[in-house]
């Protein structure tokens, strides 16, 4: 009976195969051509097939070679969610609120991804970053983004 000796690698091999299949599927309408007259689909198709075979080899290896013992990792879902969502919120809010409020809110929110965060520190850091980024990027480097966006009454433009 085959036994998975290295679960991580087994999943890794499967992941690579899935990635290749995605590239093959979404590129199904690209013209592949042949080795002498390569179409736009040739290169991605060949690479996908290569990645599938590497994925298969990784899976085979995971059935033969056992993984080394590693310390346990505990998932920290709160941190993942905050850190990954922060740039998305930043991107969505930037043109509407402007740089200063967006930066302030994002920094306050994301700082709670750490368990050592406290309100006082977070707000102070967020204020500092908001002022810094406005002075540096909108004033000195004239990045095309306003300090206060249209959603901010009186200040915005």
């Amino acid at each position: 009976m085959l036994k998975i000796r290295n679960g991580r690698d087994f999943v890794g091999g499967v992941a690579m195969i899935v990635v290749s299949l995605l590239f093959i599927w979404f590129g199904r309408e690209l013209d592949v051509g042949n080795s002498f007259q390569m179409g736009p689909g040739y290169f991605p198709r060949m690479l996908s097939l290569l990645l599938i075979s590497i994925g298969v080899l990784i899976i085979l290896q995971s059935l033969v070679v056992a993984s080394e013992a590693e310390p346990d990792e505990t998932a920290n879902w709160k941190a993942y969610a905050l850190v990954i969502l922060a740039p998305i919120v930043f991107g969505l809010a930037l043109s509407r609120l402007g740089l200063a409020p967006t930066m302030f809110l994002m920094i306050v929110a994301v700082s709670f991804a750490s368990k050592y965060a406290g309100w006082r520190h977070s707000v102070a850091l967020a204020l500092f970053m908001a002022i810094c980024s406005v002075v540096l990027f909108t004033r000195l480097l004239s990045l095309p983004v306003s300090a206060f966006g249209p959603w901010i009454p009186f200040l915005g433009n």
Partner: peptide, 25 residues
């Protein structure tokens, strides 16, 4: 815990500044 929010903040602006577009963020 004070450093990483600042890094994220600068990363966001840095990504924005590539093409002046939030898409890269």
């Amino acid at each position: 815990h004070l450093l990483f929010p600042a890094i994220i903040g600068f990363c966001c602006i840095g990504a924005y500044s590539i093409n002046n577009s939030v898409f890269d963020v």
